[in-house]
């Protein structure tokens, strides 16, 4: 356990060197990795979305690909394509940029739904089906998608089904004044290239397995269920959290417990992750705000979390 804790601390420290002053965001990113989840990093431009993704990818010694999504992108640009090779007389599959461990899908809402949806199977099943053949993706496999919530011009907002496939939605937010000053001075924010891998692929997989072994006491599970039920019963929401959402919350909470050096879950784990793990899965009623669980969805979930009695 203490070795796992050391590894996680190293990883967090490593990423923290690139993303200054945001330890809680770094923690969420690590939680996403250990819970075998995909992250949706959503914020205004210029706060370090891409930096976070790249730093995470570099800090673990895995394959890393960045895909800059644009509106004219086709699924084959992501998944790969089969090319006829005359000398062999057959089609040969040329894997696309998705065939790696960490994929940074930058500005995912800029591409067409067609291309967006091609990510679905990959994210959910860790495999790609193309031309009657199935190609497994390497492990670990993680998609870090970024999007800018303020810009609607020429974008295709992600459908609910796709949002549901992200384990956590992370907002980075502006840095504090002292941190920003440090960044301006050039003291903070090591260049991504200088980040050395601190974990091997095998170590990441071992940590992921350790996270799954975290025990959950009955009452904590009841608490989690109560939270999820509250989103389904809420008069403010038109769509509550799916069972996939509750599974995601549990997995993320387990990973958080591991990051904390525990082999058991406490209610704090569930409570702390309720907003990042659930807010993007709910739909606020049309009369109350825009669909897709924006800032209002977060507020509703945050309020619900404060009201539900914690097991003691």
């Amino acid at each position: 356990m203490s070795r796992a804790l050391d590894q996680i601390h190293c990883l967090e420290e490593s990423i923290g060197r690139a993303l200054v002053g945001k330890p809680e965001v770094v923690r969420l990113a690590v939680v996403g990795l250990l819970a075998r989840g995909h992250l949706l990093i959503e914020d205004v431009p210029g706060v370090g979305k891409t930096t976070l993704g790249a730093a995470l990818a570099r800090a673990i010694g895995c394959g890393f690909q960045r895909i800059q999504f644009t509106s004219d992108m086709l699924p084959s640009d992501v998944l790969g394509v089969s090319i006829y090779q005359p000398e062999k007389g057959e089609f040969v599959f040329k894997p696309g940029p998705l065939f790696t461990n960490i994929v940074l899908a930058d500005e995912i809402n800029r591409t067409t739904p067609k291309t967006q949806s091609c990510l679905l199977e990959a994210m959910n099943e860790s495999q790609v089906s193309l031309d009657h053949a199935t190609y497994p993706l390497p492990r670990p496999f993680m998609v870090l998608a970024t999007q800018n919530p303020r810009e609607y011009e020429g974008t295709f907002p992600l459908p609910e089904s796709q949002l549901d496939r992200f384990l956590l939605r992370i907002r980075i937010g502006y840095p504090d004044a002292p941190d920003e000053k440090a960044i301006l001075r050039g003291a903070g924010g090591a260049p991504q290239e200088s980040i050395e891998p601190v974990l091997s692929t095998r170590e990441v997989l071992a940590l992921q397995e350790a996270a799954e072994r975290v025990q959950v006491e009955e009452s904590v599970l009841d608490y989690l269920m109560a939270l999820v039920a509250a989103t389904r019963d809420s008069p403010l929401l038109s769509l509550g959290v799916s069972p996939r959402g509750s599974i995601a919350l549990l997995r993320a909470a387990r990973a958080r417990a591991l990051c904390d050096g525990r082999d058991y879950l406490v209610p704090d784990d569930v409570k702390a992750l309720a907003v990042p793990a659930l807010a993007h899965r709910v739909m606020v009623k049309a009369a109350l705000g825009h669909g897709g669980g924006g800032a209002d969805g977060e507020a509703i979930i945050r309020a619900a979390v404060q009201d539900i009695p914690v097991p003691r």
């Binding site: 406490v266 704090d268 979390v305 404060q306 914690v310 003691r312």
Partner: peptide
């Protein structure tokens, strides 16, 4: 006294 929704750590 802890509030109903307050965890032990909080």
């Amino acid at each position: 006294r802890p509030a109903p929704g307050e965890t032990a750590r909080e």
